[in-house]
Nucleic acid binder design. Structure first.
Lengths: 155, 155
DNA sequence: CGTCAATGTTTGATACGTCAATAATACAGT
DNA sequence: ACTGTATTATTGACGTATCAAACATTGACG
């Protein structure tokens, strides 16, 4: 409750909020945020390769593979290769699932709205900008490498 | 990139930022945010029971137990029971580790500072408030239950 | 053609979080 | 003292993320 004060609190709060958000999200909507992100992307793109998808939603290729395998098994998507490149696998929503998801997205947006209730449009805009700013800063930190002297296992 | 517009973007950005943050954090500082939270709390409280600790850092009791067992094995903390209540286990940092962590925290605060660079004090304050507001909203959503008609597995 | 590097996906090992079930202790009421 | 309930910590089963290694395919080049 002292020292690093506000900044540290923000850091911690960000973690906390995110965790709560994920948890409620999942329990209210029956799918993890990651999965929703994937479906959301597929809803808007018709046909896409795994690697492209993986570039958009920010998760590991391995995780994408696993999600997609499950979604395929559940009949939500189809995966296939094309003649010109046998490496890439393409992904597409099943028509039936598509409709289903669109419906379900309506409910999702309600959820999102509620978590951001009480913000004016201006505030929302500002909030988004702040988040983007942080995101940018984070990538910069990476580049600067941040003198890594002390790398013992359990600090 | 359309419909739910800003709010959805915020939602997604929040996820993204958090993920980046955790990832860089861990790679820069050699310990997961959860573990840091635990240590941070211990640094400020001398002696605490696991359940109290678990209440502060927002993670499952099972996860706390596992972290603490590792930290104990690494010689970072001690765990012990007291005569008056044999259920509770108390946790305390080892003196040596304590000094070590304090040092390491200095670097951590640098990290946090960098990720929040370019924010004025007022903005920081506001950012924190926004996060808290969201947090509050999320808990409200929980209570309202949010009509859960559609609970199929892979939406 | 054969080799090599790049690309795209998959798998295995590992880490960490959740929930549910279990175990040990504490305590209150009869 | 005995029984039932609450508290605390632990464990097991499971889901999902990561990284690193393996694998298949492609395309370039000698």
């Amino acid at each position: 409750m002292n020292a690093c004060s506000v900044r540290l609190q923000i850091f911690l709060q960000l973690q906390a909020v995110n965790k709560e958000l994920c948890s409620k999200f999942e329990s209210c909507l029956g799918a993890s945020p990651s999965r929703i992100e994937i479906l959301h992307y597929l809803l808007q793109h018709e046909e896409v390769t795994q690697s492209a998808l993986q570039g958009e939603v920010n998760i590991d290729a391995a995780a994408v593979t696993r999600h997609l395998k499950q979604l395929e098994a559940a009949g939500t998507i189809v995966r296939y290769k094309k003649a010109n490149d046998q490496r890439a696998t393409w992904v597409k929503l099943e028509e039936e699932a598509k409709r289903h998801i669109q419906q379900s997205f309506h409910e999702k947006s309600q959820f999102v709205d509620e978590t951001l209730a009480g913000f004016s449009d201006a505030e929302l805009e500002q909030f988004l900008q702040m988040l983007s700013k942080v995101s940018e800063n984070v990538s910069l930190v990476t580049k600067k490498q941040l003198g890594g002297e002390n790398h013992e296992p359990n600090v």
